[in-house]
Design a binder for these strands. Structure first.
Length: 549
DNA sequence: GCATGATGC
DNA sequence: AGCATCATGC
């Protein structure tokens, strides 16, 4: 198979404004070429020859950032799928790097320094040797399957999600913005009145001076640069002065208005009435996907007012609906699988309420006698285990002493002994190898794991515990996404994957496809990766994201 | 550019 | 307490 390095020159914003301005090409044992967009436009023979090459199945296409290339070429009517993405390869080899630009990879792996002025043809000429180096490393580190079967095909899925976009109702957003604005104006006046002065409520510095100097409220927590005024502090001060509740409400509404109502409005495309998020595949150290402009992975859900924001995200057409499928307790199930703990596995096999079961174990009472307060505490312990438990963190979270927290943790680890073994082995492996791995052999280096600095080392140990769990959950949903995408394509369905929120997938589905789509999504998500416990997926259907939350 | 504080899983 | 992004102030 003949290999071809491809570097696209583009301008504009992805995906709607993205425009191809030129193509750099380089084949093995051949010169490299740069084809300006003008030449493609004016020479139809050249254009069809180049475009034929880009879709030739007998050519191994090597690209840096294939998702971007797929989006840029989609505008030209080309269904572009590359065979080797050097950006994704570099990410798997070290997911903690800040950047994965081609120039740095060429310098680090080939020792060549590119000048800024060099054209796309010259850059393309480095892709083949770079692919050889990165491909060899992936093979040596047993990440070939993760690369070829998961990350490479996933970039195509993410490209299509980005191009699909999500329909929003701008009028509804505008009304929410106005509603939040009016409430904020009212609150601002009330806060000035209660403070006895006007100040910038958005400035933590000025707010700290008002609360802790002018009003003499007790200082609960300090920051490097002064008083802390975060929600945790304000919650504790609630009874001390009526201004505190007003400030909490102000902060909440300000967040809703600036980030969600106004922030989202500024990103709505006026022609399509959609937002086009960027789903980034090379940002997180654990293997999760991230989302920006807008971030669709932190849209509010906990409060009623927050949920109204979700109400502006709607199905694309009148005869379409939104479908969500979310994994139930995926991270705890991954922990059950990785640790092999019989009691944890049994709880999931029997379909028990996992937090109630944990409460029953940790506090030594029958499950029927678990109060909601004890269940909440057990839930915090479960989260703590996933985050890499520390007595300090659990104590902080539950408002108990570190001694009590230590007792909870000990009790948990005594009841789930293989979890204790698993944690110990994982940290030991990290100390020995310098990295930890996921179910699919995704790797994360943990340089501080042998540090003599207690804080650095402890943090590294928590990272070592959390990464295999969070990262394996990321592996699983990524596999499911690729499977679902392929099944939709094979069956010629119009349904489209729109959003991924770590343990949840959201689809736009024509009404008449709903049942078949639901059954595909269910089986692909639940059987994505066989674990020692069942994977359970819950579904919701509605006209807006609010209705399926 | 960094710190703070909000949101999500 | 693990992983993120965004708005704001300074």
């Amino acid at each position: 198979k003949k290999a071809l390095g491809i570097v696209l020159e583009t301008e504009g914003k992805s995906p709607l404004g993205l425009r191809l301005t030129g193509i750099g090409l380089s084949a093995s044992g051949d010169n490299s070429y740069f084809v300006p967009e003008k030449a493609l436009r004016e020479n139809s023979g050249l254009k069809s020859a180049v475009f034929a090459l880009l879709t030739d199945r007998e050519t191994e296409k090597i690209v840096h950032d294939g998702k971007h290339a797929r989006i840029a070429l989609a505008r030209e009517g080309i269904d572009f799928v590359c065979d080797f993405d050097t950006m994704l390869a570099a990410y798997l080899l070290d997911p903690s790097k800040a950047r994965y630009d081609l120039e740095s990879l060429i310098f680090e792996n080939l020792g060549a320094e590119l000048r800024g002025s060099e054209d796309a043809g010259r850059r393309a000429s480095f892709l083949l040797p770079l692919k050889e180096v990165l491909g060899e490393k992936l093979k040596n580190q047993e990440m070939e399957r993760l690369f070829k079967d998961v990350e490479m095909p996933l970039s195509t899925v993410l490209a299509d999600m980005e191009m699909a976009g999500i329909r929003v109702d701008p009028d509804k957003l505008q009304k929410l913005s106005a509603e939040f604005g009016e409430k904020l104006e009212r609150l601002t006046g009330e806060i000035y009145e209660l403070a006895g002065m006007e100040f910038n409520i958005n400035s933590p510095k000025q707010l700290g001076e008002v609360l802790f100097e002018k009003l003499s409220l007790p200082v609960v927590k300090k920051k490097k640069s002064g008083y802390s005024t975060d929600a945790e502090v304000l919650e504790k001060l609630k009874g001390a002065h009526p201004i505190v509740e007003k400030i909490l409400e102000y902060r909440f509404l300000m967040k809703m208005k600036s980030t969600y109502a106004d922030g989202l409005l500024s990103l709505v495309d006026r022609d399509t009435l959609k937002v086009y998020s960027n789903f980034n595949q090379t940002i997180t150290a654990t293997g999760r996907i991230s989302s920006t402009e807008p971030n669709l992975q932190n849209i509010p859900v906990k409060t009623d007012i927050g949920k109204k924001i979700r109400g502006v995200f709607v199905a694309e057409k009148p005869d379409h609906v939104l479908l969500s499928g979310d994994y139930s307790q995926i991270e705890l199930r991954v922990l059950a699988h990785l640790s092999g703990d019989e009691k944890l596995i049994e709880a999931f096999v029997k379909g028990e309420d996992i937090h109630a079961r944990t409460a029953s174990e940790v506090f030594g009472i029958p499950q029927e006698k678990v109060t909601s307060q004890l269940r909440d505490r057990a839930k915090a312990v479960n989260f703590g285990i996933i985050y890499g438990i520390s007595d300090y963190g659990l104590a902080q979270n539950l408002g108990i002493t570190t001694g009590e927290a230590r007792e909870y943790i000990e009790s948990y680890l005594n009841r789930y002994p293989k979890v204790r073994d698993y944690i110990r082995e994982t940290i030991n492996r990290a100390k020995l190898n310098g990295y930890v791995t996921t179910i699919f052999n995704r790797r994360r280096y943990i340089p501080d794991i042998n540090s003599r600095n207690y804080n650095l080392r402890s943090f590294a140990e928590r990272v070592a515990m959390n990464t295999p769990i969070q990262g394996s959950a990321a592996d699983i949903i990524k596999v499911a996404m690729v499977k679902i995408y392929n099944h939709f394509k094979e069956m010629g369905l119009k349904a489209k994957m729109l959003i991924q929120v770590h343990d949840e997938l959201i689809f736009d589905v024509p009404q008449d496809e709903l049942e078949v789509v639901k059954s595909i999504v269910k089986s692909d998500m639940e059987t994505a990766v066989p674990l020692k416990v069942p994977l359970v997926v819950d579904f919701k259907v509605g006209k807006s994201w609010e209705e399926i939350s």
